[in-house]
Simulated scan of single mutants.
Amino acid sequence: MAKPRTDFPPVRACLFDMDGLLINTEDIYTICHNILLQTHNAGPMTWDIKSQLQGRPANESILRLLSFFNLPQVNPETYTTDLHKVQEREFPNAKPLPGVEALLQTLSTSENGGRKIHIALATSSHEGHFKLKTQHLEDMFGVFTKERRILGDDKRIPKGRGKPSPDIYLVALKAINDTLDEGEDEIKPEECLVFEDGIPGVIAGRRAGMRVVWVPHPGLANQYVGREAEVLAGRGEGGELVDEHQPGQVGDGWAEQLVSLVGFPYERYGIVTGK
């Protein structure tokens, strides 16, 4: 086990996943899949398979799902089309998760050593689904300016480089640095705090050289009891090193797990809220 690092610089940028972290769409995804799986005499989706789908590109998730339920006769494209029809009906029911609205509002008015905290969104959701999930939550998502909303179909993310690759978080940091106020120093990866609920996202944040707060759904947390330290190190679903670019070590202090975003410990990250 590594010695925990304790000399981190104060956080200057907070980068947020969306599904299951800011809004309850992970539960909605489950509802949508179960509606469709039932038509194929399969399901229900449980967290042993759902944990393998979180944060991954949609096409990869569908292939994993159909393989898990042994549905080789189901065309992935047809399943995806049918799933989208169900999602179009269900996604507008998305709601903020506990503590999210207060956290985003507080960060938008907080500072670090006299410098404001910058925030960005980094979600695997493509633009069409993003609109379905958020158009009724414009007040909440208004804290993310357009240029700091990095979506899954962003052309700056190479094909096949979604989470758990670090690209989306590196693109989000560049988007912030490209829009800093005059005179502000460029923000470094270790000055960023990634907020994630899914394990591929935790790995992506760690690979990007950033600190991570992991807020898993209770169902996912139950799947990883006893393996939390490996998840926080960004060491993949079973604790193994996934590739040579992964820097995390168990107990290195770069990540922590929270039950929810209620009562977020700002001071732990050098964030001054003014309260």
Rank of each mutant, 00 (worst) to 15 (best):
V171N: 07
C14E: 04
D178M: 05
P166L: 12
F144A: 00
G263C: 11
V231Q: 05
Q87P: 02
M140D: 01
H118E: 13
T46W: 09
P9Y: 02
A172G: 08
E60M: 09
K188W: 03
T134E: 11
A120G: 01
G236H: 15
L83V: 05
R5I: 13
F264S: 00
A2I: 05
A58I: 10
L97E: 03
V100G: 03
Y224C: 03
D48T: 14
G142R: 04
H245N: 14
V143S: 00
A208H: 13
I157N: 05
Q87G: 14
L173G: 05
G152M: 09
P247R: 04
Y29M: 01
K116L: 12
R64Y: 09
Y224I: 09
L53Y: 12
G142F: 08
C14Y: 09
T145K: 14
T134R: 09
N93P: 00
S260M: 10
T46H: 14
N177G: 02
L71K: 12
A221G: 01
V213H: 03
N222M: 03
E196W: 05
S110A: 15
A13T: 07
W254G: 14
R5T: 06
Q87W: 04
D243W: 05
L71C: 12
P9D: 07
H40M: 12
Q223T: 06
T134S: 06
G234C: 08
G251A: 08
L220P: 00
N75E: 15
I117D: 09
V86E: 07
D7T: 10
K131S: 13
A255G: 14
E26N: 11
V215Y: 00
S61Y: 06
V212I: 11
P158N: 08
T30G: 12
V225F: 05
N24K: 02
D154I: 13
Q246A: 08
V213S: 04
H40Q: 12
Y169R: 01
V86D: 00
